[in-house]
Amino acid sequence: MRIGTAKQTYAADEALFDTNVQRAWMGLFIALCVAFPFMASEYWLYMACLVAIHVISVTGLNIVTGFTGLVSLGQAAFMGVGAYAVAYAETKLGTPALLNLLAAGLLTAAVGALVGIPSLRVKGLYLAIATIASSIILHFIFANWDSVTNGVKGVSVPPARIFGVELGRPFALYFLILPLAFLSVLGAANLFRTRIGRAFIAIRDRDISAEVLGIPLLRYKLMSFALASFYAGVAGGLWAYFFRVVTPESFPFVYSIFFLAAIIVGGMGSILGSILGAVFMTMVPEVLKIGVGVASPLLSDAVAVLSPVRTIVFGILIIGFLVFEPHGLAEIWSRIRRFFHLWPFKT
């Protein structure tokens, strides 16, 4: 039983962070995030930007798959749509970066809603497979619509400029990417305090009863797809500004599996899980790199080993979490928190 949680108003009871201790931790975390770029090396800034981009995309996927129960294996392809949208806007239109990102999100949301249309007729696994089909079709478009995507050669993207400031290096981009990641997560957290979020969860848990209780299924399923795709589109746009070159190979099918793995590892249907999953899955390859580096004197070809080992580890993480910890890191985290609620006075 937690103590110190008595509330005076309903609003206080429904706040995202409902105790002062939580709010203090949150403040500390934000302060650390602001201070981080001034303390960290280039490598860690690079990683932080990549993690933040992944947080946005994983949060989006968690909305559609974790909360609404519609398994999507197209998140990477959706990111591709956003990335190409930004690349096109930057190179052909020259519009401002923030506008480009918004447009990338909106365009991808439209594509996502289109991809969600089979949910009119099919659900569950059939829908998952339909998203594989859509993702393959999108890849075909990336590789073959030469006038927009420049085919397999891809597009080089100039650095983002906001109010005349060029955001070339990770240090500068950090101040664009991180706030957007914050907003994305906050938006998702808010969503699940309202009727829309409840409708999503109801669809996941028992869609036919949800319909009888007043939730128009198709509209909400498409909305969920569109929202998840909006997140992917923004993440993809940031990705384009971050890596500065977009090719059809940038967003392979395994990247979609990477995102799926992230929500499984982090915790499906958990906002915190999206963050933990994105951080964890982005850091795993780095840890493996170090591991392989340490073992390199023993290996004949350490570099060649890295990629398959990474593939294997991703697979094992998916299987292991689904079998042993289906609620992911978020559940482990809350177990730890419960332990400390009364610590050290636990009987």
Partner: peptide
Amino acid sequence: TSLLDALC
């Protein structure tokens, strides 16, 4: 509540 309301 619309989607936009909900996010904000």
